[in-house]
Amino acid sequence: MNLDHLIPILVSTVIAATPLIYAALGELVTERAGVLNLGVEGMMLVGAVAAFAAGIATGSLSIAFVAGMLAATALSLLFAFLTLSLQTNQVATGLALTLFGVGLSAFVGRDYAGMPIERVPKIDIAGLSDLPVIGPLLLNYDLPVYLSIALYFAVQHFLTRTHTGLRLRACGESPTVAHAIGAPVIAIRYRAVMFGGAMAGIAGAYLSTALTPMWVEGLSAGRGWIALALVVFATWKPLRVLLGAYLFGGVTVMQLYAQGFGVEVPSEFLSMLPYAATIIVLVIICRDPKTILLNQPASLGKSFHPDA
C-alpha cells in the first residue's frame, strides 16, 4: 500500500469521524452536567431529515445546517422538560426520544428518500490545496470538518478554563453542592442538554448533506449510539473523544476499503466491524471499574430537584 492509497483512506476517515465528533462532544457536555441523554440517535436522525428537507426547499446548505440544529435542539428541549422539570427517568426518556426520533424522521422524510442533494462543498484554498500530500490530507475538507476541530478546542476551553464550565461540571458531580453555592442547577442542565441536542443536529445534518448526501430511513445506522459509547471510551475527556472518533472513523472506512484490497470476507461481516469495535473498546475501557468510577460524573443520570 503506497501513499496514493493511504491518502484517500485517511481523508475518508476524517470525514467519517466528523459527525461522531459533533454528536459525542455534545453528549459529553450534557453528561458532564450530570444528564444522560440516550436520545442522541433520535436527535441525529431528526436533525438529518430536517437539514435535508431545508436544503432541498431553500437550496442553501447553511440554512440546512441551521434547520438540523434547531430541529434536534427542539427535541432535546422536550427531553430536558421531561427529565429536568418533570423529573422522569433519564434512561427511559432517552430511549423514548430515540424511538420517537426514528419514527418522526421516517415519517417526515417519506417524500425525500432517493432525492439527490448537492454535497457540502470542499474548501479550495488557492494554491495550498494542491500541495502534494499536505494539500489533500489537511487542506481540502469541507467547512464542518474544520469547525469540528474548533469545537473540540471550544469545549475543552469551556469545561476547564471558564467559570461557567466549572459550574456545569459541579452540576454533574454534585448538584446539591452546586445548588448550595448558588448555581442554578436546572437552568445549567437545560442549557447543557440543548447544547447536546444542537450538536447532534449538526451531526445529523452532516450525515445527510455531506457524508452520504441523501436521505434514507434510519440513515444514522447507530452512529448516535456509537457517539454515546465514545463518551465512555473517552472517559468524559474531550481530547479522547476526538481521538476515539478518528479511530472509529477509521474502522468504518476500513470496511469500505477492505474489499477493494481483495479481502475475501463477506460484506456483512465487514459491516459488523464498527459495532463490534464499539463493544471491544467498551470492554477495554470498562474492565477496570476504577477507570469509570474516577472519571464518570458522579451524579450522571440522577434526577435533581432543588425543592426536594
Binding site: 423514548a96 420517537f100 419514527g103
Partner: peptide, 15 residues
C-alpha cells in the same frame, strides 16, 4: 411510518 411516531409519543406521554 406514522406508527413509529405514535409509538414514540405514547411513551413520552406515559413518562
Amino acid at each position: 411510518s406514522i406508527t413509529g411516531l405514535f409509538q414514540g409519543s405514547l411513551l413520552f406521554y406515559l413518562l
